[in-house]
Deep mutational scan, measured.
Amino acid sequence: PDEFRDPLMDTLMTDPVRLPSGTIMDRSIILRHLLNSPTDPFNRQTLTESMLEPVPELKEQIQAWMREKQN
Score class of each variant (00 low, 15 high):
residue 1 P to C: 03
residue 1 P to M: 10
residue 2 D to H: 09
residue 2 D to W: 06
residue 2 D to R: 14
residue 3 E to Q: 07
residue 4 F to Y: 14
residue 4 F to E: 09
residue 5 R to T: 08
residue 6 D to P: 03
residue 6 D to I: 02
residue 6 D to T: 00
residue 7 P to S: 06
residue 7 P to E: 05
residue 7 P to T: 08
residue 7 P to C: 02
residue 7 P to N: 04
residue 8 L to Q: 06
residue 8 L to A: 05
residue 9 M to Q: 12
residue 9 M to E: 15
residue 9 M to N: 15
residue 9 M to D: 12
residue 9 M to G: 11
residue 10 D to K: 10
residue 10 D to T: 00
residue 10 D to P: 00
residue 11 T to S: 13
residue 11 T to E: 03
residue 12 L to E: 10
residue 14 T to W: 06
residue 14 T to R: 10
residue 14 T to E: 15
residue 14 T to P: 04
residue 15 D to S: 06
residue 15 D to L: 01
residue 16 P to D: 00
residue 16 P to C: 03
residue 17 V to M: 07
residue 17 V to P: 01
residue 17 V to R: 02
residue 18 R to W: 12
residue 18 R to F: 06
residue 18 R to N: 15
residue 18 R to M: 09
residue 18 R to V: 02
residue 19 L to G: 01
residue 19 L to R: 01
residue 20 P to D: 00
residue 20 P to K: 04
residue 21 S to F: 03
residue 21 S to G: 10
residue 21 S to D: 02
residue 21 S to T: 06
residue 21 S to P: 02
residue 22 G to R: 01
residue 22 G to I: 02
residue 22 G to T: 02
residue 23 T to F: 13
residue 23 T to M: 10
residue 24 I to N: 01
residue 24 I to Q: 07
residue 25 M to V: 09
residue 27 R to V: 02
residue 28 S to W: 07
residue 28 S to L: 03
residue 29 I to S: 14
residue 29 I to Y: 05
residue 29 I to R: 02
residue 30 I to G: 01
residue 30 I to C: 00
residue 31 L to I: 12
residue 31 L to W: 09
residue 31 L to V: 15
residue 31 L to E: 15
residue 32 R to E: 15
residue 32 R to G: 11
residue 32 R to K: 15
residue 33 H to N: 02
residue 33 H to C: 09
residue 33 H to P: 04
residue 34 L to T: 07
residue 34 L to C: 04
residue 34 L to E: 05
residue 34 L to W: 06
residue 35 L to I: 14
residue 35 L to Q: 14
residue 35 L to P: 08
residue 36 N to S: 15
residue 37 S to F: 07
residue 37 S to R: 09
residue 37 S to D: 11
residue 37 S to G: 07
residue 38 P to C: 09
residue 38 P to V: 00
residue 38 P to Q: 14
residue 38 P to K: 15
residue 39 T to W: 09
residue 39 T to G: 02
residue 39 T to Y: 15
residue 39 T to M: 08
residue 40 D to L: 01
residue 41 P to T: 00
residue 41 P to E: 04
residue 41 P to M: 00
residue 41 P to L: 00
residue 43 N to Q: 08
residue 43 N to I: 00
residue 43 N to S: 12
residue 44 R to E: 14
residue 44 R to F: 14
residue 45 Q to I: 07
residue 46 T to D: 12
residue 47 L to I: 13
residue 47 L to G: 00
residue 47 L to F: 02
residue 48 T to C: 08
residue 48 T to F: 00
residue 48 T to Y: 04
residue 49 E to N: 15
residue 49 E to S: 12
residue 49 E to G: 08
residue 50 S to F: 08
residue 50 S to A: 13
residue 50 S to P: 11
residue 51 M to I: 06
residue 51 M to S: 08
residue 51 M to Q: 09
residue 52 L to E: 02
residue 52 L to R: 01
residue 53 E to K: 13
residue 54 P to Q: 05
residue 54 P to M: 01
residue 55 V to R: 02
residue 55 V to G: 03
residue 55 V to H: 05
residue 56 P to R: 05
residue 56 P to Q: 07
residue 57 E to A: 13
residue 57 E to G: 07
residue 58 L to N: 06
residue 58 L to G: 06
residue 58 L to M: 07
residue 58 L to R: 07
residue 58 L to E: 04
residue 61 Q to T: 07
residue 61 Q to L: 07
residue 61 Q to F: 10
residue 61 Q to V: 10
residue 63 Q to K: 14
residue 63 Q to A: 11
residue 63 Q to W: 11
residue 63 Q to E: 12
residue 65 W to N: 07
residue 66 M to W: 14
residue 66 M to S: 10
residue 67 R to W: 09
residue 67 R to Q: 09
residue 68 E to R: 09
residue 68 E to N: 05
residue 69 K to G: 13
residue 69 K to V: 10
residue 69 K to F: 11
residue 69 K to R: 13
residue 70 Q to P: 15
residue 70 Q to M: 06
residue 70 Q to Y: 03
residue 70 Q to E: 15
residue 71 N to Q: 14
residue 71 N to D: 15
residue 71 N to I: 15
residue 71 N to T: 12
